[in-house]
Design a binder for these strands. Structure first.
Lengths: 192, 192
DNA sequence: GTCTATATTCCGATAGAC
DNA sequence: GTCTATCGGAATATAGAC
């Protein structure tokens, strides 16, 4: 089981480096320091390895998205909102790997019907979470306006992530732009 | 030269259908009705074909972005701004092809250094064009704020495009969200 | 410039020993 | 569970005739 996990960690690194569609079974094996046939033993085939890896990555993401209760300094709704959105814009191996995988999933879904529903489900949850946080900051805003603002912020986050990962944007600048967008959306919710 | 162009058109269709990384040289040849070796004659190798296709797509995009002078009803700056941004959110074969290819280029650039600079160059031009249009609507806004708003709007456009193309967003809704973001950004520029 | 082979490389997958 | 060795198919790329 330890082997299995270390293979999945290796696969996550390879995806971050070469993408889902650039992932070579042999490369993962080399990264993990095992033989290729061992991967087939554990995961049946390339697709099985991929699915297990994406699940692995997803679990990890939930962990770092949820676990900020430690020091228990209660955040204001506004702080919680920007923290939630900015979590995905950090130059940390784990976040990079997750963002890369997410972007790959999006890009693949354009050509692969099978992936579409998994993706859509995850995206809706995410949109609603952001809309709810917006609602805590601006309780008087109508639900439809909150939903729209949430969709815009998450779509923007994906766009900024892509630009960051593809080298067109430094991470500090991406974060600043995200903050600005949050301000703009909140101002609009207040004003309407 | 006509051959060259028809190969590039075929390649654009194949990319829209299967993505950059799903593009098979043989498939492009079949789509264009020529032999594979002819592609190698004209474009040297697969990468050469890819670069030429992306350039071709980019030129096409500039054409349909610029060419709305026909009927010469002069648009207000505000109208011109939203029209420019909404042009990329249309369910028309050519736009779909271009948006798909652009998204693929972004996604590929994460793993392919060669594509990065082509991409960065095109993106900067695009950001500045939007910033300039924003400046026409809000001439008093400081340049830095205009630049940031432009980057946000183009990044959002990319995010919305991805969601639309991957089936998570209907085109009418995507357009409405884009309009909303323009409003939010303009409101913020006015208020600061 | 364009085609018909064909060579070459790469990669997913399996067989079989330990 | 893990390895070495290898097969077979698919995709890129080239040789050479027209």
């Amino acid at each position: 089981m330890a082997r299995r996990t270390s293979i999945l960690e290796a696969a996550a690194r390879v995806i971050a480096r070469s993408g889902v569609r650039g992932l070579r079974v042999e490369e993962v094996a080399a990264e993990a320091g095992v033989s290729t046939s061992l991967l087939y033993y554990h995961f049946k085939d390339r697709t099985g390895l991929l699915r297990a890896t994406l699940e692995f990555i997803n679990d990890r993401a939930e962990r770092y998205t949820t676990a900020r209760d430690e020091h228990a300094e209660p955040l204001t709704p506004r702080e919680e909102l920007s923290q939630t959105l900015l979590l995905e814009l950090q130059d940390i191996a784990e976040v990079r790997e997750n963002s890369t995988a997410w972007g790959e999933l999006r890009a693949s879904a354009i050509f692969d019907e099978v992936l579409r529903e998994d993706l859509a489900r995850a995206a809706v949850v995410w949109d609603q979470e952001v809309a709810a946080l917006l609602g805590q900051v601006e309780p008087m805003a109508p639900a439809a306006a909150l939903a729209a603002a949430g969709e815009r912020l998450t779509a923007l986050l994906e766009g900024l992530s892509m630009r960051w990962l593809s080298g067109g944007l430094r991470i500090t600048h991406a974060r600043a732009l995200m903050e600005g967008a949050i301000d703009a959306e909140l101002a609009r919710l207040r004003q309407k």
